[in-house]
């Protein structure tokens, strides 16, 4: 069967995640840093629950109350022009 993409933004596949989990017993953060899964432009809005699930399922750990992958601002990608003003006002 063809491999299945889990993180659409960074095109990280299930077998890539499985490989990392098998060899590193990673935290959610380590899994992200090693594969870039969840680091794309959507900020994990599509893959966050999928990554939680993969980790839970393959490591047999129950879900924690804290969100496994820390949520960081900005929660929508934003441009420097938006943050600092477009310059039109000056």
């Amino acid at each position: 069967m063809r491999d299945v993409i889990i993180c659409r933004c960074e095109e990280v596949t299930l077998s890539q995640l499985e490989e990392i989990i098998k060899h590193h017993d990673p935290s959610a953060r380590e899994l992200k840093l090693r594969t870039r899964a969840g680091m794309g432009i959507c900020g994990g809005k599509t893959c966050r629950p999928l990554l939680d699930k993969v980790l839970q399922k393959l490591t047999d750990k129950p879900p924690t109350d804290d969100i496994p992958l820390k949520v960081q601002p900005p929660v929508r990608p934003t441009s420097l022009a938006q943050l600092g003003g477009s310059g039109d006002e000056t």
Binding site: M1, D3, V4, I5, I6, R8, T46, L50
Partner: peptide, 12 residues
């Protein structure tokens, strides 16, 4: 809410 996916090969 946001939608949870059922990822299967070819879903992109």
């Amino acid at each position: 809410a946001a939608e949870t996916a059922n990822p299967i090969p070819g879903w992109t």
